[in-house]
Simulated assay, not measured.
Amino acid sequence: MKQREKKELDTSVQGIIIREMISHVTSEHMIGQKIKNGELRKKLVEPVWNVPDGFLLTEIKMEQFEMEWLEPESCTSDRVLLQLHGGGYVGAMRNAYRNFAVVYSELGHGMPVLSIDYRVAPENPYPAALEDAVCAYRWLLQKGYSGSQILVAGDSAGGGLVMALTMYLRDHHEELPAGLIAMSPWTDLTSSGESYQTNFEKDPLFGKTKDSLIYNREYVGLEDPKNPYISPLFGDFTDFPPMLIQVGSYEMLLSDSVEVAKKAKSQGVKVRLHVYEGMFHVFQMAMKLMPESRQAWKEAGRFISLFKDET
């Protein structure tokens, strides 16, 4: 049996079906291209999110952005998770990330989650998103949390921002978070990784075009895309906390995860890299619909459980 055929057998039937459905939708000329380049997302109007039973949601207005504090009605955990959403630095907060917050809270046995709707490009290019992430992290410290009680998680652009935030905190001698979770992180805005070529035809969300979010330079603006606070791959990971990185093998951004994990490990960081065979960008959004997304969230739960409550 050919190696590729054997690997495909490692992908669930549900995973293959969902991947092919995404590929079918994004291959449609008009709608598909708007999905790939983020235009549809920027225009998307979502219904009001219904807060699940047993949770409380508090909206927090900062000077230049907004945050949402989600916590169980009976909150017993002394840990907290800071969530940085994806969207190519051009997409704002979505209901999907509010659902992520619920899962993170449950995995943390009642841990509150702070999700920030940071400023995005083109109106607000770098360093706006990083500034807002730093502001939110410092807000948690001012609220009484220590770095050892804070986990930071993000997907796609948010996954890269998780690392940029940690680099910034370390470089400015501030308390670092206890651990990082990065799902399909965008860590190389130069698009120089091998998988940008090898997965160009395979990636169902970004493939077969360069008019897509991962080639968008609106966030970079006039800055050097190799700036580590923009592309963490080109930075130093010394003294970083443990990281869990999840990525799909079909992603054009596969190299962004693989190369960061390799570099961080060489600099003494504890890194768990899991490449999910046959999976696409941020496949965790499928939640319970396929074995791979269920496994990914269980893995995230095991990682979170490593950081015990202090009480």
Rank of each mutant, 00 (worst) to 15 (best):
Tyr118Trp: 08
Arg138Ala: 03
Ala96Cys: 12
Gly110His: 00
Val113Ala: 02
Ala92His: 12
Arg138Thr: 13
Pro127His: 05
Glu106Asp: 11
Gly88Gln: 13
His109Val: 01
Met111Pro: 01
Val103Ser: 08
Ser115Glu: 02
Thr76Lys: 14
Gly88Cys: 09
Tyr104Asn: 08
Cys135Lys: 12
Pro112Tyr: 02
Asn124Ile: 02
Leu84Glu: 08
Gly110Leu: 00
Ser77Leu: 03
Arg138Asp: 13
Phe100Ala: 02
Ala129Tyr: 07
Gly86Gln: 07
Tyr126Glu: 05
Glu106Ser: 09
Tyr137Asn: 06
Phe100Leu: 01
Val120Cys: 14
Gly88Ala: 13
His85Phe: 08
Leu81Phe: 01
Tyr104Ile: 00
Ser105Trp: 02
Arg79Lys: 15
Gly108Thr: 01
Ser105Val: 03
Asp117Asn: 15
Ser77Gln: 08
Val113Asp: 01
Leu81Met: 14
Asp132Ser: 11
Asp78Val: 06
Gly108Met: 02
Ala129Arg: 10
Pro125Asp: 06
Ile116Gly: 06
Gly86Phe: 09
Ala129Ser: 14
Ile116Cys: 06
Asn124Met: 10
Tyr104Cys: 05
Ala128Glu: 09
Gly86Ala: 12
Asp132Lys: 11
Gly86Ser: 08
Asp117Val: 04
Asp132Arg: 11
Leu130Asp: 05
Gly88His: 11
Gly108Lys: 00
Glu131Lys: 15
Asn124Gly: 01
Val120Lys: 10
Glu131Phe: 08
Leu82Asp: 02
Ile116Lys: 03
Leu84Thr: 08
